[in-house]
Every structure is written in structure tokens, then in C-alpha cells.
Design a protein around this nucleic acid. Structure first.
Lengths: 151, 151
DNA sequence: CTACATCATGAAGTACATTCACTACATGAC
DNA sequence: GTCATGTAGTGAATGTACTTCATGATGTAG
């Protein structure tokens, strides 16, 4: 009854990757509901956790969105008391988006949730198989990044 | 260049999976720009390609959004002439969202782009390695789906 | 000091998504 | 048949995310 027949072997593998990505997304959505946050705001907090206090320009670049959009995201996170805008010590135009105590705790929860998810997913996979899995992933992403370059 | 085989950490593997998902997403974004479509609309078309003409209720369930939202997505796809609303033969309340010629062609392009991406990603991976990769994926998603059930 | 670039934001617009209320229609009980 | 109840789709209102364009404030090179 299906309109489309597309199941070749590589396609099936890609579909499984996408399925896993969907499940991971669902896990993140649970975290977001618990914390009363949204995906873009969590993404911003994640970047903030990696870099520490950052200008909105840098955040825009890291998130791949326009600076104007970061203004809106930061507005929301200020309203929910996850971050504050601090003056940039060396540039009076810029603000340093800085996590509050709540923000720091949220980022820590996010990281531990991420690690726990990885453990649940891959913790029981035998070492040799997991190594092969990771290698194929690395080769694949590397080759794909090269293909993107060529265009 | 590595001579020592360090044990692969689950978190590192998860990060690689997410990285690959990001690259795939970027490839889809290219398709969307070319076709003048958005991710939710492409998703709807994809489902339509799998199921054939469908009620908006079914689409809402398949997409995991509210029926009201499907109304809006279908409005957009009707405006861009990708689908039409046809009367449901057995239920005068319902409409059958049906791809137009353009919609059918777009779905075909989407599928072939999907297959081509899979080929570019996994086409050159040796069969045995790809099989292990797919197995780990399957075990992982299966185990994870079970863990989600228990809560 | 002037010219130009950069940081953040106001204004305006589009898309996605929600909830709530409502109309039209279907279906099972009597 | 009629009545109660449920289902399909949409209008209204709202919130978030995202964009482009314009502007004020500040930094920087000449």
C-alpha cells in the first residue's frame, strides 16, 4: 500500500540514525518541559556552559542565528532568571551574557542528563563494537564534511 | 595517527551521533531552500509520501502536533500548490490532503535526495562494518525505547 | 577629528505551535 | 427517528523563534 519503495541498505542505516536522533530529541524535550525551557534557550545555555560569559555576537555565531534573534532569546532567559546581562569590561557596546545561580544549576543538570543519556544508550555496548560504531561515525562525518566543502 | 586505542566514552559517541544529525539537518535545509519549503511542511509531505492521501487528523498524529497546527501547515502547502484538500469519500467532516503533481514531484525529489545522502554517507563503508554499525544502532534504539516505556 | 565598522535593539513581518470555543457531521442507544 | 456523545476541521487569541532593515551608541583606523 506504500507509494514509495526506497529501502536500500545505506538508506536503512540513515533512517536508523534519524530514528535515534528523534529519540534523543524526545529525551531533550522531557528535560525542557521539566525546566520550563525551550530548545533554542537550552541550546544557548549549553553554549554558555562551554564558553562561559559571552557576548551576544559570539552566541549568534555559535548558534547559527542572527544577533537580533539572540537578543530575544536572552530576553527570555533573563525573564526566567537563568542569565543576566553584565557590562563588558573592555567594550561598552557589548554585554556579557552570564548565567545566574539558577542558570549554572540548569546547565549542570543539562550536562549530567546528557552524560546519563549517553550511558543509557551506549553503556552496555561491548567495547569492540562501540569502537567500530564510533569509527564508522567519524569516517562518515569526516567524508561528508569534505563533500560539503566541494560545493 | 593514533597508535593507542583508547576506550571510547559513551558521551563521545553520543556527541558524534548528534554531530552527524546536525550535518544531515544541514543537507535537508539546503533542499528546503531550493524548494522554498520549511521543515514542518517537508515533514508533512514526507508523511504524505508514505501514506498517500490522508486526513488532517492522521497527519497530526503522525507528525506529533495538534490538528489545529496541521490546518496551518496544509494552508501553506495549498497556497504553494503542493497539496489540495479533497473531500473524504466516506466522511463529510474530513478532508483528504492530497499531493498535486508538483507535490508528487517534490516528494520524489525528497526521497531521491534522501537516498543520495545515504549513499554519500554510507555507500563506501565496508559491508561488515556497516552491518555492525546498523546492529549497534538497532540494539541501542530498541533498548532506549524500552527504557522510555518504563517511565 | 573623521570615517567606518561593530554591538545591541526597535519595528515590522512570517512561520510554527499551542489552547479554547465553535460548527458540521458521524454514530450508537433508545 | 431522535437524542446524546464523540470526532474533523477551523476561527480567535497567544507565545516563541526567526528574519530583514534601520538606528543609536560605541570602538578603531587614518
Amino acid at each position: 500500500m506504500k507509494y514509495i519503495h526506497y529501502m536500500t541498505a545505506p538508506t536503512e542505516v540513515l533512517d536508523r540514525v534519524l530514528h535515534l536522533a528523534t529519540l534523543v530529541q524526545a529525551d531533550l524535550a522531557r528535560f525542557e518541559r521539566e525546566q520550563g525551557l525551550t530548545t533554542p534557550r537550552v541550546h544557548l545555555l549549553w553554549v554558555l556552559g562551554e564558553t562561559g560569559p559571552t557576548t551576544q555576537q559570539s552566541l549568534a555565531q555559535a548558534l547559527g542565528v542572527t544577533p537580533r534573534n539572540v537578543t530575544g532569546l536572552v530576553d527570555g532567559l533573563v525573564a526566567s532568571a537563568h542569565v543576566t546581562r553584565e557590562p563588558h569590561p573592555g567594550d561598552r557596546r557589548a554585554t556579557l551574557v552570564t548565567p545566574t545561580d539558577l542558570g549554572t544549576r540548569t546547565i549542570a543538570d543539562l550536562v549530567s542528563s546528557h552524560v546519563a543519556l549517553a550511558q543509557r544508550l551506549f553503556g552496555d555496548v561491548p567495547t569492540a563494537r562501540l569502537a567500530t560504531f564510533a569509527e564508522v561515525l567519524e569516517e562518515t562525518t569526516h567524508r561528508f564534511a569534505q563533500l560539503m566543502e566541494e560545493e
